[in-house]
Amino acid sequence: MLEIHNLCSGYGQGQVLFNVSLSIQAGEVISLMGKNGMGKTTLIRTIMGQLSQRSGQVRVASRQTRGLSMHRIAAMGIGWVPEGRMIFPSLSVEENLIATAAIRSGNPQVWKLQDVYEMFPRLQERRNNGGAQLSGGEQQMLAIGRALMTNPKLLILDEATEGLAPKIRQEIWQTLAKIKAAGLSILVIDKDVKALSRLADRHYMIEKGRIAWEGDTAALIADEHIVKRYVGI
């Protein structure tokens, strides 16, 4: 579904990513963890074409993304929930959801408006409210719902539960488990190691722009020093 090989990227003259390699298979959930400023968001922005690839390769469903615009990469089947959510504040909840809706062939599930409302009943209750009138948790639900409405094959979440109340965080993790059960591939960035260990199949740790560790959940749980060193928790 996603294959990254020896990817280098950065901003201006500064290089942030150094030979990053990472892969996600169809139906697999992968976590990306690391301290602040280690390159997590830079990696996502490079995958999505917001930043140029200096060297290396990014392939989505075996197709090269180098030189493609953001909307063309998204059209390959990637739904992005960016850090900060970036919903449209002047549009209603329902308008946010249908603004980027698309139907793609070969998806494990077709996401329609009613499916999102069933996943997030609170959004249906507030469907006529403006995006700016929502709480932080509701905005995150809306950002996830909007990404699902593009009917992606891969869902990418940058800081999935950062800054949210504990009850809302729990609801988001439960929702991601349902999305995984529907067969969607997921790449998720977060600092909640316990939640990620329950959700994800494999994990990557990034430090100073390099993949410093990778392994499955059993390996992650077996070595408590991994989390302390690379996540700082």
Score class of each variant (00 low, 15 high):
G106F: 13
L155S: 02
V58N: 06
M86K: 15
L123I: 11
G27D: 07
R146W: 00
V93C: 07
S197G: 04
E3T: 15
Q174E: 12
I78W: 07
L68E: 03
D192W: 03
F18K: 12
I211S: 03
E83C: 08
Y204Q: 04
K228Q: 15
R229S: 14
I73Y: 05
G183H: 07
P121R: 13
E171H: 13
R63L: 05
D223M: 07
Y117N: 12
Y204F: 13
V116P: 03
G67N: 03
A102D: 07
L43D: 08
G136E: 00
K194H: 11
L113R: 14
Q170M: 07
R229V: 11
A143F: 03
I179D: 05
R45W: 04
H203Q: 02
S90G: 03
S135W: 04
R72L: 07
E83A: 13
E125P: 02
L220V: 13
Q25T: 12
R54V: 10
K208R: 05
L68S: 01
G56H: 05
S62A: 12
M149L: 01
Q114D: 15
N107T: 15
R198S: 11
L164R: 00
G232T: 09
S23E: 10
I4P: 09
I172K: 04
K194P: 00
Q170W: 03
D223N: 15
A147D: 00
V116R: 13
L123H: 11
L22T: 01
I189R: 07
G14T: 14
R169I: 13
V227G: 14
G37S: 08
S90D: 09
E3I: 13
G130V: 00
I87Y: 00
T46V: 13
S23C: 08
A102P: 05
A102L: 12
I186W: 07
K180C: 07
I44S: 09
A99P: 02
G84S: 09
S69L: 04
R63H: 10
Q50L: 14
E95A: 15
R66N: 07
